[in-house]
Design a protein around this nucleic acid. Sequence first.
DNA 1: TGTCGCTACGAAATCGATTACGTAACTCGG
DNA 2: CCGAGTTACGTAATCGATTTCGTAGCGACA
Lengths: 340, 340
Amino acid sequence: MSERVTMRDVAAIAGVSSATVSKVINERPDVGAEVRARVLETIARLGYRPNAVARGLRARHTDTIAILTDDLEGIFTNALMRGVEDAASAYDVSVLLANSYGDPEKERRHLRRLLDRQVDGLIIMSGNRVRPRSGPALPLPGTPYVFLYEYGAAEPVPSILPDDRSGAELAARHLIGIGRRRIAFLNGPASWDATRERLDGFTATIREAGLPLEPGLVQHASSWSPEDGFALATAMLTGPEPPDAIFCGSDDLATGAMAAVLERGLTIPGDVAVIGFDDRSLAVHQRPPLSTVALPLHEMGKVAGGLLLAAIQGEPQRHEIIRVSCELRIRASTIGPDGA
Amino acid sequence: MSERVTMRDVAAIAGVSSATVSKVINERPDVGAEVRARVLETIARLGYRPNAVARGLRARHTDTIAILTDDLEGIFTNALMRGVEDAASAYDVSVLLANSYGDPEKERRHLRRLLDRQVDGLIIMSGNRVRPRSGPALPLPGTPYVFLYEYGAAEPVPSILPDDRSGAELAARHLIGIGRRRIAFLNGPASWDATRERLDGFTATIREAGLPLEPGLVQHASSWSPEDGFALATAMLTGPEPPDAIFCGSDDLATGAMAAVLERGLTIPGDVAVIGFDDRSLAVHQRPPLSTVALPLHEMGKVAGGLLLAAIQGEPQRHEIIRVSCELRIRASTIGPDGA
DNA sequence: TGTCGCTACGAAATCGATTACGTAACTCGG
DNA sequence: CCGAGTTACGTAATCGATTTCGTAGCGACA
């Protein structure tokens, strides 16, 4: 229970007023070199640290932004948050994480608390409450916010998304480039916006190359799970003309698809090349290691953080959807020892 | 930039003093029913929310605790944090997450910031700075803290760990129970405390059952990766007397081990039963689904949160290592269609 | 009726910083 | 040598709540 040393203590010992100490800390110009040195020395000697709560009260900003997410497993949040932190650390702003785990009530509570806590801005990865399906949206009084990895936001604020369409194009072109002719797309659930955009990119590229695009080659799974990937891939492979490449909507789907290929005694990538989407860490540990289209999570976070910080500094916010390019990660499931 | 409504506004409109408003909010007894109702009505009508920063300054507590972690991937942190949040929500305390991603400098900065921010307590899952290998530990002035999932803490504070020893016993007994006689232990790196404890539990159980315990049956991997699991399991299986069961130190190791078993044309669990440790989400998606010893992450978080909150309420802290029991999750890799 | 004890409320200090403003001391040109 | 301008520091208000303490009003009781 040792009493913390306050600014007054420093001032008294250094023989100046607390206003001067404050000026030294905030590096204001109107303080002499001699006094500054004495104050600095006293601060160091006493181990003084400013009380951020008191500072926040008076200064009317807390140098804190928050991420509001509902990512159950925290799979994507980690990388996204790291990007945001990288952007924020340049401004000496710290980042809070509030996870509702998909519970709207929790989300509401979190949002209220964050606002009570006077965060300077919000990154929203969870739109249940802010843009609810029904009922009024929670007002965000004067607090800037941006959407991150949230499809379909209509507010007049930036919204940062991966470039799903061009990501799918990347995958398709890669498979075409290694000589595949019957390329299947094992897409995610049709209800997701991302799958539609990826479908567009895939279809355009395949059509452009003059390759077949039969209904059987393009399927929507009903979830993103490996189990669904296994089931759908098995169905594709048992058809009359099986594909020689499968582009999967997620690494999990691809994991299941690879199991299906191997179980039928076919080789990867010799008989069937497989490529995923996301680049989750499991991708590299697959046998064979899974080629994939990497989601630019870190970069997306950086962009979101940068825009939010700019908005906090007073820059006007426009409504724009910012697409961040995906990156192709080529591994052994498309170019392997038994391939090409 | 709409000015936020303050307590004074509420007081003025309700025709009372701000002291009274404060009392209503904090549910103090000395306020009449009639006035209370009027204040409450005014608060609701104006949409007033108390400013947590101002409150924290005067009340000298912020109703906030923080988790300091260095978990790069955030694999365990998510579940742990959820446990902490569950414990904290009963006290209406919110939980901050600070991740150093293994960078000691970042950890130092986070810790300083959290203390500046006057958090009421800390859960430490990252001991670099608090108990550094070299150099002085950062003092935590009057702020209670507990260690969570941190081996080898020597401070006079509680330290919450999984019961690794009995977890290993659980696995060994299960394998014995399904009739296996040559049980191998593909343990994690020997430098980790947990592996030693698991080894103790495993050895004791096997010895007690009178089963063989040759050096070849007990191996340490040099990492926790599937690749190492694959390599070591392959070595075990190509020996003169291959095991009929493999207990792996992590689900990742087990994933590699299963691949090794299958690649040699053996069946799981028919020829070789495989069981892991951790119960990461990938376990259930394996083919076959992986039996495993589940780390009680959620419960550990709850215990840690509960103890920290108790300490904040003023209860004295003892130095004790609290072990939380692991749980056996039996799936098809030990009891499957081709097994038993 | 006078006094004691409660109850219910308000005035004002307080938490620990930031900041607008006032003012000595000093500089410098005319 | 004087007045304006600059520099360097201090005084005091302020941020928005909590909390201590004082007191008006009331009922009860002797």
